[in-house]
Amino acid sequence: MHADPFALRDLVGPSARVCRRALTGESGVSLPPFVDHHVHLHLIDEHRLAEGGIAGVVDLGGDPVELARRGDGLPHVAYAGAFLTPAGGYPSGRGWAPDAIVRPVTDPSDHPGVPGGAATAVDEQASFGASVIKVSLNAAAGPAFDAAMLDAIVAAARVHGLPVVAHVEGEGMTRRALDAGVDVLAHTPFSEALDTALIARAAASGQRWISTLDIHAADPAAARTGSANLAAFAAAGGSVLYGTDLGNGDRPVGVLAGELTALDVAGVRGAALVDALSDPWPAAPVSGVATFVPGPTPRSLDDVAGWLSGATVVPSEELIHDDH
C-alpha cells in the first residue's frame, strides 16, 4: 500500500483517500462515483455496471417512454431520450436502433405540436425527463441537419434549459456543431483530422468531448484520428468526459481498460483521467456510493490507467478512511 496520501493525490487528484472496507477489511482507495457518459441501456446488462466500477450512466439514445419508467437505484441514469435526426438519417433503419429511439425532425418550427417540428421533438424528450437533447450529425451515413435546422433544435433545447449533445461524423460536421452552439460531442471526432484553430475554438467555447476512443480498436485510421484530435483538444484546455458507447460491440460492462488506456495515450492522465470519469454531467452527482479501487496504489502516472480498471462501486458508509 502506498503509505503517503499526499503522493497519491499528486497522481490522481485531491479526491483520493486511502481507506478500507468495514466488512472485509480490504484496503484500497476511495474516489468519487464514476460515470460512463455514453451508453445505450437497451443493448447492455446494466445490472453488471456497479460491480464493474460504474455508478452512473448517460443514455444517449433510447426509448424515452421506457427510460422515464425507470426507478431509483444503481446505476443512476441520466438520458437524452430519442435521437433527433433528419428523415432517413442515422441511426434510422439500423438493427440496434428500433423506431422508438429515433425521432425524425423535418421542420424547424418553434411551435409546439407541429408534426416533425424541432420544438415538438425537443418538447417530447423534455416531457419524459431528458437531461440532454441528442442530435445526429452524421453526413457519412445519410442526410445530416443543415445549419438552420440544427440552430432550431438547439434553440428549442435552450427553452427547456437543456444542453445539446451531437454525434458528429463526416466532413465539416464538427464545425457545424460548434457553429450551432452544441454543448457536447458524443464521440471524439474520428472521421476527419481537425485543424488547430477549430480545436482551440472548441476548447475555448467550453464544449466538452466524450471520449469513446475504444470503439475504434479494430479501425486503426479512426483510432489514430480520434486520438490525435483528443490529444490536441485536451492540450488546448478542453474538457473531456469518459464515455464508451457501451452497447456498440461486444465489450465488458463496467470501466473499460481499453478506454482508460486510450485516454492516457491521448494525454488525459492521472488526475485529469479521474476528473473525466467522475464528472457528473449532465446530472447531479451520484449520492450514497463511492468508487473503491482495491489493493496497492499506483506509484507513477504510467500505472494509473491500469489501476483504475480495477474499480468497483460500494456504499460510502462501508468505507473507513485512514488518511487522517
Rank of each mutant, 00 (worst) to 15 (best):
P91N: 10
P91F: 10
P91G: 11
P91T: 13
S92C: 12
S92Q: 15
G93P: 08
G93R: 09
R94Y: 15
R94N: 10
W96M: 13
W96H: 12
W96S: 15
W96A: 11
W96D: 09
A97C: 14
P98Q: 04
P98A: 08
D99C: 04
D99N: 10
A100D: 15
I101T: 13
I101G: 00
I101Q: 10
V102S: 09
P104C: 05
P104D: 08
P104A: 07
V105I: 14
T106S: 07
D107C: 13
P108W: 04
P108F: 06
P108A: 12
D110H: 05
H111S: 13
H111P: 00
P112A: 11
P112H: 03
G113R: 05
V114Y: 04
V114P: 09
P115H: 15
P115I: 03
G116A: 03
G116C: 05
G117I: 05
G117V: 01
G117M: 08
A118G: 04
A118E: 11
A119L: 05
A119Y: 14
A119G: 03
A119N: 01
T120D: 15
T120V: 05
T120Q: 14
A121C: 12
A121M: 12
V122D: 01
D123T: 09
D123I: 00
E124I: 06
E124Y: 03
E124R: 15
E124Q: 13
Q125C: 09
A126P: 04
A126S: 15
A126G: 10
S127H: 11
F128T: 02
F128E: 06
F128M: 13
G129K: 06
G129F: 01
G129A: 01
A130R: 11
S131T: 15
S131H: 14
S131F: 02
S131L: 09
V132R: 00
V132D: 00
I133K: 00
K134S: 11
K134G: 07
V135E: 02
V135D: 08
S136Q: 06
S136Y: 06
S136P: 01
L137Y: 13
L137M: 14
N138Q: 02
N138G: 01
A139V: 02
A139F: 09
A140Y: 03
A141G: 09
A141F: 15
A141L: 11
G142E: 04
P143H: 13
A144Q: 12
A144I: 07
F145M: 07
F145I: 05
D146V: 04
L150G: 07
L150C: 08
D151N: 14
D151C: 08
A152R: 06
A152H: 01
V154A: 11
V154Q: 10
V154H: 10
V154E: 12
A155V: 03
A156I: 12
A157H: 03
A157V: 04
